[in-house]
Measured scan of single mutants.
Amino acid sequence: SLNIVTVTLNMERHHFLGISIVGQSNDRGDGGIYIGSIMKGGAVAADGRIEPGDMLLQVNDVNFENMSNDDAVRVLREIVSQTGPISLTVAKC
């Protein structure tokens, strides 16, 4: 069973999320979106629970499971540009 973790980040303390995301597209185009790298000083690094290779399932109320990489990057950028905490739900691989 997948270990699902939801992390809520206070964006007032850390001014950027600090992750890159990578799409693992397979033949069907539904390989999922994964955490690529984590930048020091960002909210994700400070929290420490999300790691490279984790699968990104949801951000706030947006489901990322069947999203293309381009869409995921765009949607994540829109969410980060808003104010307030950000909740990331990942599956630990």
Rank of each mutant, 00 (worst) to 15 (best):
S68D: 14
T83E: 08
L56T: 01
L76E: 02
V75K: 13
A91P: 00
L76W: 12
R77H: 09
G23E: 15
G29H: 13
D70V: 05
T8P: 06
V7N: 02
S68Y: 11
A72C: 03
V73K: 13
L57Q: 06
G31Y: 14
Q58P: 00
I86C: 15
F64H: 01
E78I: 13
V5R: 06
D27Y: 09
Q82N: 13
F64C: 12
V80L: 07
N63R: 11
P85Q: 11
T89P: 00
E65C: 04
G31S: 10
M67S: 08
L2Y: 15
N26Y: 15
L9C: 12
G18N: 01
N3G: 08
V73E: 15
T6D: 06
T8V: 07
G31L: 05
V90T: 06
K92A: 07
D30A: 13
N66E: 15
D30F: 06
R74D: 11
V44F: 04
S87K: 12
C93V: 03
T8L: 10
E65A: 08
G18M: 00
R13F: 11
T6Y: 06
V22Y: 08
R13M: 07
E65I: 04
F64V: 05
D70N: 11
L9F: 10
L76Y: 14
V62L: 09
T89H: 12
P85A: 13
L88D: 08
G41V: 09
R77D: 15
N69K: 13
Q82T: 13
V62G: 02
N60R: 03
L2I: 12
V5F: 13
M55R: 05
I86L: 09
R74I: 12
G32T: 05
P85V: 11
E78K: 04
T8N: 07
R77N: 11
K92R: 04
D71N: 12
G29R: 14
V90K: 02
I79A: 05
I79G: 14
L76F: 12
A91M: 03
M67R: 07
T6E: 10
H15R: 04
D71I: 09
M55D: 02
E12K: 11
N3R: 03
N3E: 03
S87F: 07
N69Y: 13
E12D: 08
I86Y: 05
R13N: 14
L57I: 12
V80A: 14
N10S: 14
M67C: 05
I86R: 03
V90I: 15
N60H: 02
V22H: 12
Q58D: 11
G29W: 07
M55V: 12
L56D: 02
R13D: 14
K92N: 06
S68W: 03
L88N: 03
V5Q: 04
D71V: 11
S1L: 05
G32D: 05
T8K: 07
N66F: 08
N3L: 02
A91Q: 06
N60S: 08
S87P: 01
V75C: 09
G48S: 08
